[in-house]
Amino acid sequence: MSVRVQREDFDVGAEIAALTQGNMQIGGITSFVGLVRDMGGNTGSAAMTLEHYPGMTEKMLATIDAEANARWPLEASLIVHRYGRLEPGDQIVLVIAASPHRAAAFEACHFLIDWLKTKAPFWKLEETGDGDARWVEARGSDDAAAARWSANTGKEAAE
């Protein structure tokens, strides 16, 4: 049950080990790692810079994390989101959910990343390769993915 916003990269294995160490109630762990995808194609560099709203970002991530813990019986959870300049292939975001049973871990992890995409104040500035850059536009499909969880309380997995 913690969140971090950082410039540095993260080690998924080390994060899982630290999060779950000593907790014998955990029966399953689900993790999601988001990477910078090369959107440029032939334009060369497709690096991007992630801007965020210090203060509100941490607050929103903590709110989303608390919501997941209220909906599913989690033993541990973690959100790590990076900011600053990132290259294609770099890790951007890590979400981990651990629970006695796999269904809650899978669902909570999916929920965390879906909500984070539309509710955490991050913005991507994509380099276009010609020395210019453009702000990535929000996608309607992300809103739909987040909305899917509005009606679902997560009770199915809890039982």
Binding site: L50, Y53, I113, T118, P121, A138
Partner: peptide, 10 residues
């Protein structure tokens, strides 16, 4: 008060 475009994190 903060003003910003729709978020594009994750």
């Amino acid at each position: 008060v903060a003003l910003f475009p729709p978020m594009t994190g994750g």
